[in-house]
Structures are given as C-alpha cells and as structure tokens.
C-alpha cells in the first residue's frame, strides 16, 4: 500500500537533513508505527506522505502510484489525525465536522451523530469548540480524520492529551479500523501506544530508522526468557522459561520459603529502544 525508498528531506532553513534515507513498506490493513523521541523526524515523514511537504528526495509509492502523480483525489483516500487539536473555536463540534465533510463530495460519509457517540462527545456536539477540553478536541480530531471513510490513515501522537480511559478507547478504535482493512501509519513517542496497536514499528532517531520489526519480536530479541522468583527473605533466583514445569530447582526454590514476587523478565519496548538506539524516548 505504502512503499518508501531512500526518503531524504531537508527543511529550507536547515543545513542538515531531517530525514536520512528512510526505507519502509506498509501493507494494506497494517498498523505501522514510527517510534522515536521528539525531533526524530516522525511527523516530517508523515507530512511528506500526506503531501504537505514537497522537495523530498527518494521514492514514495502509494497504492502503486508515485505520490507526486496523485492529484487532489489522493486526499479523498487519506485521513489525517494531527498531533495537536486544530478546529474553528467559534464553531460547534458538529459545525466543524460538517464544514470539512463538505470537501469530500465523493466520500462515503459516516453518520455524524454516531461519530460523536463513538468518542463520547454526543453531549458536546452542539457546543462551541472553545468550550472543549484538550482531550475533547483531540477526540474531535480523531473523528474528523475518519469521517469520509478513507483507506489510509495517518495519526500523529493519537493518544496525546487524552486521559487513560479515552486513550484506551482511541487505541481500540484504531484496532477496529485495522480490522476493517484500513492501512494505518502512526507516529508516537509512547512505547505503550506503539506496543498495543502496531503490527510493526520502526525506531526512528535523528532521521534514521534504527530497527523495524513487530513489537513482540523486538521484545523477544532483547528480553530474557526467564522467570524471576523473589522470596520474602530477599533471596532471588532466575529460571529459564523453557521446561519450567519440569525444573526441579524451580519447585524446590519455591519450597524454601514464602514467595514475595514472581515475574517474567521480558523487555519493554522502551528498554529495547534504549538498547538499540542508546537514547531515551521521553526526550
């Protein structure tokens, strides 16, 4: 669906390129994520893909056609959820959505009320957006991006500014969109978001992709396949997960005292990120 080869981009006022030779492919129906700290080039890569930035070098093929060959019909095919809320504050939520819906004459528009219900904004749909909280505005961003039923979705930090409950709901909605066959490109610096919704992630640092794989493979490759047992007297031992049921040492250690904690030592995505890139995500 999306094929990017040797993508380079330099902003006019910068001497150094922001994107340095990116290569990646996103299959139809896949949720693909760019995970990286602020300033890594995640949003810039997305901007090239949704045609806000031109003057890039390399090849960007969308649905078999170079992005430069797509006309304005490309924007009927894509939906963009921006990182920050951007709405007319003096208009109501419903008026904002209706206005932007009018630009998609060929769109298979979703019902407005059900969209507002989907993100629990039905009671606020007739209120001016200036009365919305940041989280409400972000949810409005989300439904605006999907209201014309696009095939490809770009979400820039989709859970930013949301409370845990609403962040969970948005992630669930993204997974629902994936199950409908939508191709989804997410950028985030939230390890938890990437881990829970992405089929594959790329670690992006300083404009370069450092690794690409599924979150589970990345964690398996960098984590320890062991279980750690800690007794109340402070004694701790690690046992391999392989053949753990038949491991006599494990069962006898459990009988040595009261067990305080048992945990697997699987790496988190953030630990994998740090191990690969040498950088923290929360920059």
């Amino acid at each position: 669906m999306i094929h990017v080869e040797d993508l380079n981009f330099t902003y006019l006022k910068n001497d150094n390129p922001t994107l340095k030779g990116l290569n990646f492919t996103i299959e139809r129906g896949e949720v693909f994520g760019f995970l990286g700290p602020s300033g890594a080039g995640k949003s810039t890569a997305q901007k090239v893909l949704y045609k806000i930035l031109d003057g890039y070098q390399g090849s960007v093929i969308i649905d078999g056609k170079s992005i430069s060959d797509w006309g304005k019909d490309y924007f009927e095919k894509i939906g963009v959820g921006f990182e920050l809320p951007n709405h007319y504050l003096k208009l109501t939520g419903k008026e904002n959505l209706e206005l932007f819906a009018s630009f998609y004459p060929n769109g298979n528009h979703k019902d407005l009320v059900s969209l507002f219900e989907m993100v629990d904004l039905q009671d606020a749909m007739d209120k001016p957006v200036e009365a919305y909280s940041k989280g409400m505005k972000m949810r409005l961003n989300f439904i605006r991006s999907i209201q014309h039923n696009p095939d490809i979705l770009f979400f820039d930090e989709p859970t930013s500014g949301l409370d845990p409950v609403n962040a969970h709901k948005i992630k669930q909605h993204i997974l629902d969109l994936k199950s409908q066959g939508k191709t989804i490109f997410v950028t985030t610096h939230s390890m938890e978001t990437a881990d829970s919704i992405c089929d594959r992630v790329s670690f992006l640092v300083d404009g370069k992709i450092q690794a690409t794989d599924s979150p589970s493979n990345l964690k398996n490759n960098y984590g320890k396949e062991v279980v750690s047992v800690e007794l109340t007297d402070g004694t701790t031992k690690e046992f391999s997960l392989h053949g753990l049921g038949e491991n006599v040492g494990f069962t006898s250690f459990l009988n040595q005292g009261d067990v305080k904690r048992i945990q697997t030592l699987e790496a988190t995505l953030e630990e994998v990120f740090i191990a690969i890139t040498g950088q923290s995500l929360q920059v």
Partner: peptide, 18 residues
Amino acid sequence: IDEKETDVAKVYGVVPLT
C-alpha cells in the same frame, strides 16, 4: 490569522481542495 494560529490551516492542506 486565526486559522493559522489554531492550526486549522493545516487541515486545508489535507482535504480534496486545490
């Protein structure tokens, strides 16, 4: 200016409107 300040202008960059 308000459209620019509130970033609504960015939305016009990704809708099917030349």
